[in-house]
C-alpha cells in the first residue's frame, strides 16, 4: 500500500515501533508486529496525508468507500 499510495515514503524499525516518514510528517508509533489492526493503519494514513481512496483499494474496508450519490460535489456533474 505504501509503495503505491505514498511514493517516496520511508520506514525503519526503532526499538519499540516502526517509524514512517512521508509528506513532511513522521509517524513514530506504528506497531512492529504483523497483523496490525485497521485503526493503526487508518490513523497512519490520515496523519501522513496518504490518499484514502488509494489506501482503501489496497486494504478493503479501511475507509468507507465514497459513492457518487453520497458525494455532493459529484452529484451535479
Amino acid at each position: 500500500m505504501l509503495q503505491n499510495c505514498a511514493p517516496g515514503c520511508t520506514w525503519r524499525f526503532s526499538t519499540h515501533n516502526r517509524v514512517i516518514t512521508f509528506n513532511g510528517h513522521v509517524y513514530r508509533t506504528f506497531p512492529k508486529h504483523d497483523n496490525v489492526e485497521l485503526g493503526h493503519i487508518r490513523k497512519m494514513v490520515r496523519f501522513l496525508g496518504i490518499d484514502q481512496d488509494c489506501a482503501t483499494q489496497h486494504i478493503p474496508g479501511l475507509f468507507k468507500v465514497k459513492t457518487p450519490a453520497a458525494d455532493p460535489a459529484k452529484k451535479s456533474k
Partner: peptide
C-alpha cells in the same frame, strides 16, 4: 505506554 515508548525511541535516536 506507546507514548512513553516513543519518548524512549527518540532518546535512543
Amino acid at each position: 505506554n506507546t507514548y512513553k515508548n516513543a519518548l524512549f525511541d527518540m532518546a535512543e535516536e
